[in-house]
Design a protein around this nucleic acid. Structure first.
Length: 485
RNA sequence: GGCGGCGUAGCCAAGAGGACUAAGGCGACGGAUUGCAAAUCCGUUAUCCGCGGGUUCGAAUCCCGCCGCCGCCUCCA
């Protein structure tokens, strides 16, 4: 069964067929780095990360480009707007490029914690100003743009396909415009390709039209083309950017190159907090660093993947706690398999041939789920079924090494490689060594003595007091183990 | 005002005309196991998919109306 994806361009589910048989060119809009990343970034980039991982699992070679927006853009489309990066840099009293560097690092740090693979290329907008100037020149030459007072605007009336992504109509846009119409524009929907730098605007570059800076839609067109070509397979981004950002990207790129810009447009839905949209300008955003202080990053990742990327995700502490327990269950099973494998001497157990076939069935179900527009919630449901099956197997006797190997491999590919929710170090399994570990071991020994003497009062007291300081003891047939609660 | 989306058990969340007498997770309850716990296993927890009509042999899934919520139309993942 082939992979199907929901294409915003056309608003329907389509079979995925890249331009080249085995190669996928993928571009995803990256962050504007003027603050620490928040949980909205987690939803977006975890979703696209899972897609990249799955495409690679299917055997595609994927070049994944995700830009870093480090050129300040105006807070609105009128000329009054402030440059967010310059504004923040002034507030922190650092050079804009220093600010941008700081938050770029912060961004990668958090994405690494979420186990997102680094993009193959993370181009910065500020490093591609010459290319942006070039495309503006091309658009002027081809008659799709006009210059007014040192600024250049895209002439939307010359591009008849404008609106094909978002379904907007030009006359409706004019009528509903909330922003005061810029008198320099011929049409209210015309957008800036190049903006003249007003006095005091720090981030500026020289151009054929004087000192200025690029319009905010331009960088993605330019960097996608530079690294992936004039037509790419997948362009991803947040739903809120479908209009106007992506619509404008299409207009610029297709007007400049005369060919389709992207074959598939994939948009992830938004994060809400207590049912309300979380947005930078709303000031109600939760940074990932705050969230990580309360939840293991992998739990956040798992939480994101338990809902579909095109559904909104409502963030709440309770929901994440529930997700954390769900992930713990998976990790427990993976740990159990790894442990059983160490002790497995028989190459093959009694029913291993049938078991291998059953494990293969789980893999097929998993792929069926992912093939339906990257249905990670359903894929996780399959993984949960596999967890139950694994626990039953482990409890019911002696599986051979062959079955255990196959199970390990299933968790390693589906859980680790594709979903990225299983890692080498598992949540809640570590019993740290060092002085702390040796002290806990002493207490465990003392408790074992008490239990042996049927002094359960002492034994339970030790366990309860350890629990109060965050150490959880677990009695197993092989002895007592512990972990940080 | 225009455009788009959503409403499934206590909670989160799949399913998009017939394998649905509706996945999976969390929670709760009962049982097995355990000295007691934890982990694990077994069972129960939506006669029903916002409400009202309609189409169909058949609808959570399609159509119409209503109610509620959300997003976009201004920077945002």
């Amino acid at each position: 069964m082939p992979l199907k994806v929901y294409n915003t361009l056309g608003s329907r589910r389509e079979e995925f067929e890249p331009l080249d048989d085995s190669y996928v060119r993928m571009y995803v809009c990256g962050p504007t780095v003027y603050d620490h990343p928040h949980i909205g970034h987690a939803k977006s980039y975890v979703s696209f990360d899972a897609m990249v991982r799955y495409l690679r699992y299917l055997g595609y070679k994927v070049t994944y480009v995700q830009n870093i927006t480090d050129v300040g853009h105006l807070t609105d489309d009128a000329d009054e707007g402030e440059d967010k990066i310059a504004k923040r840099a002034a507030r922190e009293r650092v050079d804009p490029m220093e600010l941008v560097e700081k938050y770029t690092r912060s961004y990668f740090e958090d994405m690494d914690a979420l186990n997102c693979l680094r993009p193959d290329i993370s181009p910065r907008a500020s490093g591609h100003i010459p290319e942006q100037i070039e495309i503006v020149k091309t658009l002027l030459e081809r008659g799709f743009a006009y210059e007014v007072n040192g600024s250049v605007y895209f002439d939307v009336s010359r591009f008849s396909a404008y609106g094909k992504l978002s379904g907007r109509k030009l006359d409706e846009l004019a009528a509903g415009a909330r922003v005061e119409v810029n008198p320099d524009k011929k049409h209210p929907a015309d957008f800036a390709l190049w903006k003249k730098a007003e006095k005091g605007h720090i981030l500026r570059w020289n151009s054929p039209w004087g000192w200025g800076y690029p319009g905010w839609h331009l960088e993605c067109s330019v960097m996608a083309t530079r690294y992936l070509g004039e037509t790419i397979d997948i362009h991803g981004g947040g739903l809120e950017n479908a209009f106007p950002h992506h619509e404008c990207e299409i207009a610029q790129s297709e007007a400049a190159h005369g060919k389709p810009f992207a074959k598939y447009w994939l948009h992830n839905n938004m994060v809400t907090v207590d049912g309300v949209k979380m947005g930078k300008s709303l000031g109600n955003f939760i940074t990932l660093k705050d969230a990580f202080a309360r939840h293991h990053p992998l739990c956040l990742r798992y939480f994101v993947l338990t809902s579909h990327y095109r559904s909104p995700l409502d963030f709440s502490e309770e929901a994440i706690d529930a997700a954390a327990r769900g992930l713990q269950r998976i990790h427990n099973a993976v740990a159990a398999v790894r442990q059983a494998l160490q002790g497995a001497s028989e190459p093959q157990g009694g029913n291993d041939v049938e078991r291998l076939r059953e494990i293969e069935r789980f893999r097929e179900r998993f792929e069926e789920a992912m093939n339906e527009d990257f249905n990670t919630p359903q894929a996780i449901a399959v993984l949960s079924d596999l967890v139950r099956w694994t626990n039953q197997l482990l409890a019911s006797g002696a599986p051979g090494a062959a079955a255990l190997e196959k199970l390990k491999s299933a968790f390693d590919t589906l859980g680790a490689d594709v979903l990225g929710i299983v890692t080498d170090t598992l949540v809640g399994q570590e019993a740290p060594g060092g002085l702390e570990g040796r002290l806990v071991d002493i207490l465990i020994d003392m408790r074992a003595e008490a239990r042996k003497a049927k002094d359960f009062k002492t034994a339970d007291a030790i366990r309860e007091r350890l629990e109060k300081v965050g150490v959880e003891l677990m009695d197993t047939p092989e002895g007592t183990t512990w972990k940080r609660a």
